[in-house]
């Protein structure tokens, strides 16, 4: 694929030597507004705390982010939630953070 694309690029973008580039015909096509399939996320499995983790975490990322994580210890989950709060400023109360860690330890299992 690279040859034909590169040929097109060279012909289109790089015709002539560098100082003559004002003649290069590249125009960026205005793109239509793209449609992102953000509604495709599967959500968190129902159970104790699932409403808390959904309301605290899915503002910034879909549930599959969390559900695709490996099994981790409670200490590791605590560190993950703490980083979301302290580094990325997720407004999670200490009480909700405990519920979230409990949910993750239960749903994801321990290694």
């Amino acid at each position: 694929m690279s040859r034909s694309l590169r040929t097109a690029l060279l012909a289109g973008l790089l015709a002539g030597s560098a100082p003559a580039l004002a003649a290069a015909p590249l125009e960026l096509r205005p793109t239509p507004e793209v449609d992102l399939p953000f509604g495709d996320d599967i959500g968190f499995p129902a159970g104790p705390g699932s409403d808390v983790i959904a309301s605290n975490c899915t503002a910034c990322h879909s549930a599959d982010h969390t559900l695709n994580q490996p099994a981790l210890s409670r200490e590791e989950w605590h560190a993950v939630v703490d980083k979301m709060i302290t580094a990325y400023k997720a407004p999670i109360t200490p009480e909700d953070a405990r519920v979230i860690v409990d949910y993750l330890a239960r749903v994801k299992g321990e290694p």
Binding site: D35, L36, F38, G39, F44, A54, S55, T58, A59, A63
Partner: peptide
Amino acid sequence: RGLLSAAALGG
């Protein structure tokens, strides 16, 4: 498309 429905339906 995503956020509110995901949050509302996540549970």
